[in-house]
Write a protein that binds this DNA or RNA. Structure first.
Length: 537
DNA sequence: ACCTTAATAT
DNA sequence: TATATTAAGG
């Protein structure tokens, strides 16, 4: 309540006016701190005991932005009580006690920082950082009312800054921003003695939240970008911040960071992207709020304007979406714009997809052909079909080759897409053969699949080709299982049909090996073919 | 207008 | 290394 919208919009000198709850039983100490804070334009509300302070909080939620609480030997419990109760309020503990345990306890209980007294200006000046931090990072769990406005305010503020910077000369910008950004780190540190402000983000979930660094990165990134490029056309980009990996990763591999961007290119796309939410594709549930793993950190707040495009982090989830989209579309239809549509990941641009697509395709082509040769030395001229009857399948000589993707099963949407009628190659180019079924990429579905998700051949069918699968069709099921395990339940519907279709096709191909596959139709996966063959034999 | 590819930049 | 950007060509 304290912060009304109007107030915010008027909140020009941001840190000024922040409401500080000061809890200190020592009146003189309280008075001293208060005066210092006020000198810095903070608005201070002093309380002599935790109960008063707590009732003030409960009576008027949102009345305070940050709390400064004294921990004394005489009443440390009161302080702890406050700390534990006022979870929504970034609370900074202050004390003459230098006991490490006490400090740790405070932090453990949720204090955002522990400041040793005496509190000189340098230690107090930037307590607003905790407010901002919370505003930006507490989103997932709790975002008290008073925080949101701050967040918005900060965002717009930063944006403003950026715009200004754009017009000014770079050096200035950088400096300014840099200093701004850095304040958060540097200044805090000194305050707490050697430790940077412990940002105890108690609410951090799986590890991906941006920490201090986050905001900073945000800013810095923007800056860099800005200075470095002339935005040609107005591109507005959304940035998500990639957080410093070290910070998070506790146990996670680096890939959870997700960054996305938005690009409004004039020319480009029709795909508008809005970015707000970029979620990660996790399918589990949804696209929107989802979850967890990767999540959204950030989001750009409303107004547009962050500039900088960040790299998209093709997390396994995202990649999976991509692959699924590609599969759904079918080879010849898998073009950036469509894939983008299917992916439904806002914040991705056509360019991003195109780039990824390019990589996706390239990964296989160079290698596969060689392997083909290796395996089928005779090449297309010869017919060794007796052994590898499906070779003919490769309607597209240069590439084609699913063969080493044993797992693969199938294109989920196979029949569905309806493109299997002879097709049309929209893009005059001879389309390459179908890409490997997406599933391949997921061969490590359970473990955290990862970077290497790119199709490394999973194991060529050298010896028993279908070693992995039981003779029939299991491939599909595997695929489906894998998919679901990865979180994308989506294609369940087509599994059945796909299998039938595939079997049909396989038979057809076997019977008429000389016929190329209809354009537009993806060849059956190697596995399927092999499986079928073995079954027939 | 969009796609693909290759080369190159970040 | 992964991704973005660019340039050239369809």
């Amino acid at each position: 309540m304290v912060c009304t919208t109007d107030e915010l919009s008027a909140w020009k000198d941001f840190p000024k006016g922040l409401r500080v709850l000061l809890l200190d039983e020592d009146n003189s100490s309280a008075a001293e701190i208060k005066s210092k804070l006020e000198a810095m334009d903070y608005i201070v509300y002093t309380f002599c005991n935790e109960n008063e302070a707590l009732s003030a909080i409960s009576n008027e939620p949102g009345s305070f932005h940050v709390a400064l609480v004294e921990v004394s030997t005489s009443n440390s419990n009161g302080s702890f009580k406050f700390l534990e109760t006022a979870k929504d309020l970034p609370t900074i503990m202050t004390s003459n006690i230098h006991c490490l345990n006490t400090m740790m306890k405070c932090i453990a209980l949720g204090a955002v920082e522990f400041l040793r007294k005496p509190l000189f200006e340098d230690k107090l000046r930037n307590i607003w950082q905790h407010v901002v931090h919370k505003a930006f990072n507490a989103g997932r769990s709790v975002q008290s009312e008073s925080l949101k406005p701050i967040k918005d305010s900060i965002v717009s503020m930063l944006e403003l800054k950026m715009e200004i910077e754009e017009n000014e000369d770079e050096n200035m910008e950088k400096t300014e921003n840099a200093s701004l950004a850095q304040e958060s780190n540097e200044q805090e540190s000194p305050a707490s003695d050697e430790h940077p402000a412990p940002s105890t983000r108690q609410f951090k979930q799986v590890g991906q939240l941006p920490d201090d660094g986050d905001c900073q990165d945000h800013i810095n990134c923007s800056i860099e970008k800005v200075s470095g490029e002339q935005e040609r056309e107005s591109k507005s980009v959304e940035t998500t911040c990639a957080m410093s990996q070290e910070t998070l990763q506790a146990g996670h591999p680096p890939c959870f960071i997700e960054t996305v961007i938005e690009d409004t290119d004039d020319l480009t796309d029709g795909v508008k992207s809005e970015n707000n939410t970029h979620h990660n594709p996790q399918n589990k549930d949804s696209l929107n709020h989802s979850n967890d793993v990767v999540s959204d950190l950030h989001t750009s707040y409303g107004t547009r304007a962050n500039r900088k495009k960040m790299k998209v982090d093709w997390t396994p989830e995202l990649h999976k979406k991509f692959v699924q989209a590609v599969d759904k579309l079918g080879v010849d239809q898998a073009i950036p714009s469509r894939v983008l549509e299917l992916m439904k990941v806002e914040s991705l641009t056509r360019h991003n997809v195109a780039s990824h697509l390019q990589k996706y395709r390239m990964r296989r082509r160079p290698i596969l052909p060689k392997e083909d040769d290796r395996r089928w030395p005779h090449h297309r001229d010869q017919v060794h079909r007796s052994y590898y009857p499906y070779k003919p399948i490769m309607a597209y000589p240069p590439y084609h080759s699913n063969h080493d993707l044993p797992t693969s099963p199938v294109y989920p949407m196979w029949g569905a897409a309806g493109s299997h009628t002879a097709g049309v190659h929209m893009w005059g180019t001879p389309s390459y053969p179908p890409w490997p079924p997406a599933e391949i990429w997921h061969r490590k579905p359970y473990s955290g699949m990862h970077a290497d998700a790119w199709g490394c051949p999973v194991m060529p069918p050298l010896h028993g080709p279908f070693s992995s699968f039981p003779p029939n069709a299991s491939g599909f099921q595997c695929a489906s299982m894998i998919d679901s395990s990865c979180g994308m339940p989506q294609n369940s519907f087509d599994l059945q049909p796909a299998e039938e279709v595939i079997n049909t096709v396989v038979k057809e191909v076997i019977n008429k090996p000389w016929l190329p596959l209809p354009l537009g139709l993806k060849p059956p996966s190697t596995d399927s073919v092999l499986a079928e063959l073995s079954r027939l034999r």
